[in-house]
Nucleic acid binder design. Structure first.
Lengths: 221, 221
DNA sequence: ATACCCAAAATTATCTATAATTTTAAAGGT
DNA sequence: ACCTTTAAAATTATAGATAATTTTGGGTAT
């Protein structure tokens, strides 16, 4: 009984999303449906549906009759995603605040610790996302949470594009400040720190595949 | 030469979206791909892609192997959409404020007047949406604007579900207050009014098709 | 009468094949 | 040499057909 709740289209979409976010697929790369269909052992119909899912997440862009490409991004989009995240995560935290339990705050503390000890950017991102997810999840607003998740994926793209290798550990003071405010019931203060934290944009010179140096812009929060 | 930039999937999605928003398709109604394909004179493949687009907008919900239904909505979702709109439209207005010209403000004034004179809810909604669109469009943040558009569609659904008929004209004081603040360069004040305005939720008893009375909750802003 | 099970029908998801469009590359004219 | 035109190849978009799953309805036992 292979009762799977997942359809092939969503499987393909999830796998492609991982590749785009992690940078294995570069911005502007063409996604050819027949090639992808062959790789996944399906026809191209589920692939087309997967493309639509990626488009909705803002990870791919479709031009009718001209194919699908990995969405490009520039500084303006990094800023845009950061500001949207700030607005929506603050809204979510305000609604979640009254439902936060000591157990949730403890789990968030642990996620922060895990992030501080992360050895590479993938591990750090996973812990960071867990921290933010834990705090906003109790808001009970599914549409809002889905929107925030999509923005997190976009943020991670920017992050990975800069820190593909050479990650250095650090202690996250903002996370601890947010938790301390929440423990004291100071919701406004927690939201203020969160808003600033998410909108912080890092600048880092990186080497591209072609050897040239260029500046990368990263959401770290 | 039928060089259309619109694919059949998007045409179907747009038509179905209109029906869902206007209430011609009721919440929970099943969307059967073969029937819809026949109506539009296509095969079911473009229909399936249209379903994915509707899903992304939050207008339909898909359960694998069990079909697609028009998304339901309750008071919680009305509140959720209103709060998300408030957060995102304020963000957009803050970024748009410095690019607003007297010409744009005049056009927004005209949209307000048109809304005040509207004879039915459809006309009012069109004018209202135009007003909000004019003010936020200059922010230059395409992802943000797309998210706001989707939320507007959801708002309109709630609105039409209550005011299917018997609309009464009124003068919109909030719109005028927002414009006055913007003319004076008082961005914070304008955003404050906008936030309250969008979050205002109307309550109205309506008659359902089955004859029963029930309460409807409406975003009017 | 009610609950359960099984077969038939309806519906969804996928595959194979076809048509339409765009990209490419090359040939020919200026 | 360079630009335009034209044919070929690659790719996307849709159609028609098949397989798999769920729903429906009737019959039977309790």
């Amino acid at each position: 009984m292979t009762t799977r709740k997942e359809t092939k289209a969503t499987q393909i979409a999830r796998t492609l999303a991982e590749r785009i976010v992690s940078g294995k697929l570069e911005p502007g790369a063409r996604l050819r449906q027949d090639h992808i269909a062959e790789e996944f052992g399906t026809s191209h119909v589920p692939v087309r549906e997967a493309f639509r899912l990626l488009e909705a997440q803002g990870l791919a862009k479709n031009e009718p009759r001209r194919g699908v490409r990995v969405a490009a991004f520039d500084l303006n989009q990094v800023r845009e995603v950061a500001e949207m995240r700030a607005a929506l995560e603050v809204l979510a935290l305000r609604n979640a605040a009254q439902h936060l339990t000591p157990a949730i705050l403890a789990a968030a503390e642990e996620a922060t610790l895990e992030g501080d000890q992360a050895r590479d950017v993938m591990a750090w991102e996973a812990a960071n996302r867990r921290f933010h997810r834990l705090l906003v999840a109790p808001c009970g607003m599914p549409r809002l949470l889905a929107a925030i998740d999509d923005l997190h994926a976009a943020s991670a793209r920017f992050l990975f594009s800069a820190w593909r290798s050479n990650w250095e550990t650090r202690t996250d003071r903002d996370h601890r400040a947010i938790l301390e405010h929440l423990r004291r019931g100071e919701t406004d203060a927690a939201c203020a720190v969160l808003s600033r934290h998410v909108q912080w944009i890092g600048h880092k010179p990186i080497e591209t595949a072609s050897g040239k140096k260029r500046k990368a812009f990263v959401i770290e929060g």
